[in-house]
């Protein structure tokens, strides 16, 4: 899932300075599951913002709604009705949700309430960890199902750096060394010798270095109108 967390209230009140009537829009998918932008979080944040503005002597009205998936145009289309009465939309979706709203309603100010952090999973209650950076060329087949691109602070492809000690990363002693994990996993599968293969430099053009990425599936595209 996409994991996000709410921005600090002080940042949001500064961002919303001058606005009087705001629509807070939650999302019912990833950010609901990670307790950052679902129905409940929209309600709590809206109350906090109203209260903060009242205390500042600048009351602001905050309406609340949550769509099932903020990243798809058809789910946000119904918001068009009544949107004129708001002078800003505060999205509690991930960065994709914010941009989907902004693309669909280009005349409207759309502001982010969350900091979108990563693609990951919950490892225990209240803890989420990154597992994928969407680099566009998966290497999990050669690294025992453990991703060195997202889990090694140096994105090493040929084994651990000299800072790995006691199974932990030099950057943060609470973070396991990805290469220690890869080594243990492959050794446990009797495949440790595979780590002797030199992995060549990666082609990062499939990652963000190639610019915004796009996947086109001709088998799924609708035919051009004149062919119909």
């Amino acid at each position: 899932m996409i994991v996000a967390k709410q921005k600090p209230l002080s940042e949001l009140t500064a961002m919303l300075d001058g606005y009087r009537n705001v629509l807070a829009v939650g999302c019912g998918t990833c950010v609901t599951v990670c307790f950052a932008g679902g129905v409940k979080e929209v309600g709590i944040l809206a109350s906090a913002l109203r209260m903060a503005r009242r205390l500042d002597g600048e009351p602001m009205s905050v309406a609340e709604t949550t769509v099932q998936r903020q990243c798809e145009a058809e789910y946000i289309a119904p918001l068009a009705e009544g949107l004129d009465e708001f002078d800003a939309v505060l999205s509690l979706g991930c960065g994709v949700g914010v941009q989907t709203l902004a693309e669909r309603f280009p005349g409207k100010r759309v502001l982010p309430a969350l900091d979108t952090a990563f693609m990951g999973l919950p490892t225990e209650q209240g803890v989420w960890e990154e597992r994928c950076q969407g680099c566009g060329h998966c290497v999990l087949d050669i690294t025992g199902g453990i991703c060195p691109v997202s889990r090694c602070a140096k994105q090493l492809m040929n084994g651990p750096c000299g800072g790995s000690q006691g199974g932990m990363c030099e950057v943060d002693t609470d973070t396991p060394c990805a290469w220690q994990l890869i080594w243990e996993r492959l050794a446990g599968q009797g495949l440790a010798d595979r780590l002797l293969e030199i992995q060549p430099p990666r082609d990062w053009s499939t990652s963000r270095d190639g610019g915004p990425r796009r996947i086109v599936r001709d088998d799924l595209r609708l035919p051009p109108a004149e062919d119909v």
Binding site: G159, P160, S164, G166, G167, Q180
Partner: peptide
């Protein structure tokens, strides 16, 4: 002296 120790010689070999 870093860990995992077994992998250190492998890495030198690489």
């Amino acid at each position: 002296f870093a860990d995992p120790f077994e992998l250190r010689v492998h890495r030198l070999a690489k």
